[in-house]
Design a protein around this nucleic acid. Structure first.
Lengths: 204, 204
DNA sequence: TGGTAAACGCAACTTACCGTTGCGTTAGTA
DNA sequence: TACTAACGCAACGGTAAGTTGCGTTTACCA
């Protein structure tokens, strides 16, 4: 069996990068339902045949775009200041930061959208779990150092926090209101029995 | 100007009812993206031309289905026992009850889905607000009788509660876990400073 | 009870996008 | 420089959207 010599550099790599990047852009503009292959092709300056040969179905294209461009799809590594509330706030606000770039909007729309296609849904669920992970770490560290009670249910906290934030992101396209996010975090942390910080002394 | 005699009873009414009901069923099965007019037509035992003449676009059909069948789309009138936690629990669990009927699944999918069409999205937002209303009333009554502190932010409570529940409904199709919903409610109510009920004595 | 026309069924049509195929051309690799 | 993987291009068939014309059914009213 003669292994065909794969061409990894040069034109092929350029095409792959451009197509996947454009896919995320169009995904952010039109959503999954409105994503047309020919639209992606023309925006990427590529013939649609090229796309079909590499990614047979629309779902595979979107899956590839979300998984391959890991640098974009990956959640921001949380910078821990050591205080739970401002760390969580910074983390959740990063969704708004992510939306600043065209491809980032595609990632966010994948985080909050139902694709309709089972394979796409699976990848979106993975992506959501990836984005939950930094928050989970923050909560676990906070519990380890006593900022959260030892019996705190971190899974439940994550469900409520991410549910509220993603729900808000889904319902209106405007950037997150920093103060609203802060109040959500305070409400939930206070519910689990975390010591509340004074109302005024929050870093902007 | 001769007013055309409208035909409200008989065949026309039967057709309208059957089509709109079928639309919700198909919406629950396939989602908005996968809803095909010809599919609705055949399932309703009606020619597709009939649908197009009455509802020119797919969006208008879905909007009509969601708004006209108000008895299905309407949220369950909350039966107040006088205690906040079990009332909220019963209210949120009704989403699962709603899903028992084929058309109810269409309503639920409209509550949690992004349509892609702006008009459909607007109606879905209205529908969500309709379903938030009973919970809002429960919370306001609870605050009025002192079960919640006077300074409790009811809008915020609703954002967090519905965000968590709808997020859960969206991510997996299984019925809501009653105990999980109860823990969400307790977490949030405890956060706002509501007196917590004993852990065991909840009317399952 | 019969006449009128609103509403429906049916078939044929255009349009749009999907996804495929064959073939010529470009450009990475040896 | 020779080879060929990968791309561009054009044309194709398939499916569903949405439209139109016309004949048929049937609700409404005199």
């Amino acid at each position: 069996m003669v292994r065909p010599k794969a061409r990894v550099g040069g034109r092929s790599a350029r095409v792959v990068t451009r197509v996947l990047e454009t896919t995320l852009e169009v995904l952010g503009r039109e959503g999954f339902a409105g994503l047309r292959i020919e639209d992606v092709a023309s925006c990427a300056g590529v013939n649609k045949t090229t796309i079909y040969r590499r990614w047979p179905t629309r779902a595979e294209l979107v899956v590839a775009a979300l998984t391959t461009l890991a640098t974009l799809a990956a959640p921001p590594s949380a910078v821990e200041s050591g205080e739970l509330e401002p760390d969580l706030l910074a983390l959740f606000m990063s969704a708004t930061t992510l939306r600043a770039s065209p491809a980032g909007r595609g990632v966010v729309s994948a985080l909050i959208a139902e694709g309709g296609d089972p394979e796409v849904d699976r990848v979106c669920a993975e992506l959501r779990e990836m984005h939950r992970q930094p928050a989970r770490v923050l909560l676990e560290h906070a519990r380890a150092r006593g900022e959260l009670p030892r019996r705190a249910d971190i899974g439940l906290l994550l469900d409520v926090l991410t549910g509220a934030v993603y729900g808000r992101l889904r319902e209106c396209p405007e950037p997150l209101d920093r103060d609203w996010v802060r109040r959500v975090i305070r409400l939930v942390l206070s519910g689990v029995g975390a010591p509340s910080r004074p109302r005024g002394s929050s870093g902007s």
